[in-house]
């Protein structure tokens, strides 16, 4: 058994998108900073609630993954379809889900978007294009391709994006979907959040392929590896992939290198990595980097503090709201089995 060898820095981008060409303005980046911090604080609050025993089941936070979600939300239209894995709080919040309803859902409370029936692993809101987070690794990926197929059948301008982790790359359904999506030139973006651990096992211990974006090259699919912790890089890559998709040029596979700063799920013992490794990765995490980027652009620490204070208040309010919120009516246990 060998220790996982993680590179000290984020691997350099190897393909098409090395440097952002569509640099965002400071005015565009400030709300993205706000959203990233909001996601971070919601996730941290949920972990605290889990530790205090208020959340049952499995909950997977995206601390460290925020750039993928926030870059995506800025790059796509609200009507574009999105599916994602059970690590999907960040995508939903970035697309505009109310933190109150999100936290209620995780706690199983009545004001949750799914009345507490879906919980942490099944974030969904069709009005925001959120067509379901999924509890089965990889299962949401053909759904997004099917939504892209629907858009193509209807002749619509919509596209679909699906998020999954490095662990999903080894599910057969992924490769079935890649093949059909490329063959039929479907308007879909496959975004792999490669945090380098498939649940608790480093992919280096189980994968025959080290650069995941190379998998789809056999299908002839456009693919690239990017710095998934730089929100501008993510924004740029998804913007270009979306333009290709809308132009009928077919799918794009984006491997965004990232790192999960918290455990795989609440309660993860994290015996598979050292505190030093996590500490080392903090230098590359997306929120700290955007913070520094904004300071470098002349935004004052005071202004950023103000944004953070507002977010702290909003998240605390949402947590308080959710803790006080009522449980669902028990009659709801029997509803929504069939659509009538």
């Amino acid at each position: 058994m060998t220790e996982p060898s993680l590179k000290a820095s984020v691997p350099s981008a190897k393909a098409a998108v090395a440097e952002p060409t569509a640099v965002l303005s400071t005015e565009q980046l400030l709300p993205m900073y706000r959203m990233m911090f909001l996601i971070r604080r919601v996730e941290e609050s949920l972990l605290e609630l889990a530790e205090s025993g208020k959340i049952g089941g499995a909950m997977h936070t995206a601390i460290g993954h925020e750039a993928a979600a926030v870059g995506m939300a800025a790059a796509l239209r609200k009507e574009d379809y999105l599916t994602c894995t059970y690590r999907g709080h960040h995508h939903s919040l970035a697309r505009g889900m109310d933190p109150k309803r999100a936290i209620c859902e995780v706690l199983g409370k009545a004001p949750g978007f799914a009345k507490g029936k879906g919980g942490s692993m099944h974030f969904v809101d069709p009005s925001l294009g959120l067509m379901g987070a999924n509890g089965i690794v990889g299962a949401q990926v053909p759904h997004a391709a099917g939504m892209a197929l629907a858009a193509k059948i209807r002749g619509e301008d919509r596209i679909a994006i699906t998020f999954f982790g490095d662990g999903a790359m080894y599910q057969g359904v992924m490769h079935e979907t890649f093949n059909m999506a490329q063959k039929w030139k479907l308007p879909v973006i496959f975004y792999c959040e490669n945090n380098r651990y498939s649940e608790m096992t480093p992919i280096s211990r189980t994968s025959s392929v080290s650069d995941l974006y190379l998998f789809v090259r056999a299908y002839g699919m456009e693919s690239m590896q990017i710095d998934g912790n730089d929100v501008e890089v993510v924004y740029d890559a998804i913007t270009k992939a979306a333009a290709r998709a809308r132009a009928g040029e077919g799918p794009t596979f984006i491997e965004g290198i990232t790192y999960r700063l918290a455990g795989h799920m609440a309660g993860d013992l994290e015996t598979y990595r050292t505190p030093e490794e996590i500490e080392m990765q903090r230098a590359y995490e997306p929120l700290a980097r955007l913070h520094q980027k904004l300071l470098d652009r002349g935004v004052s620490e005071e202004e950023l503090n103000k944004i953070r204070a507002e977010v702290e208040e909003e998240v605390q309010e949402a947590v308080d709201y959710a803790l006080e919120a009522p449980w669902p009516d028990i009659a709801e246990a029997y509803t929504d089995v069939y659509k009538v």
């Binding site: 067509m131 299962a139 079935e176 093949n179």
Partner: peptide
């Protein structure tokens, strides 16, 4: 798996 999943998505 792939086409069943795509049909579900559609």
């Amino acid at each position: 798996q792939g086409f069943m999943g795509m049909a579900i998505g559609a």
